[in-house]
Amino acid sequence: MALIEINSLHKTYNTTAVPVHAVNNVTLHIEKEEFTAVVGPSGSGKTTLLNMIGGLDQPSEGEIIIDNTNLNKLSTSAKVDFRLHNIGFIFQAYNLIPVFTARENVEFIMLLQKRPKKEREERSNELLKAVGLQDRMHNRPSQLSGGQQQRVAVARALASRPNFVLADEPTANLDSVSAESLLDLMEQLNRTYQTTFIFSTHDDRVIKRARRVVTLRDGKIDYDKQNVQTVSGE
């Protein structure tokens, strides 16, 4: 059974006179340890799809089953707990807690999970070492570069030992060197921790590295290909 099963998913916005079908009958199965990019032009529905996979948005129709849990059947607070224990998030703008150090940002997720202090410290050390920031763990986000902040965000996303990581345009705010470095890191973590990564992106560098590329257009899946080396984004 797939880690993520998306069946006949619809998301319709009725904010205008004409309903907007942001996601239109998407069916998609994502297996464990996949390194998948969801691509497509702006407005194609990739962020909406990722938001629904992350339990942040409610589908209009269809269902999402993650590791045998149907998200539609979870209450709002249960979804929060589900996200905490099953999903890691990486955001385009890093979105670290500005008043915490790199290490505290990583630890914070584990604190929410009520993990013991010793485990929190050991895991945050391990993850920050894995992302190459063992020397900057006591720095606050404002003292780190964009690439370094996104690395902390990656460590934070993995801190909860999630089933998968959702990354929304993770390289969009990074220069090319930082972006390549981040992708190297995520590939390595994907292999090391067998963590599933799902990206929304229209960055060619990400698309080239993805082992599976799902292309959306007008809310529908246009292509779904394995091991694609070059896929045109926008």
Partner: peptide
Amino acid sequence: AREFGILISVGMRKWR
């Protein structure tokens, strides 16, 4: 507001 949204997204309960 955005920061709160992020914290809830990553799994922080609203009451916390």
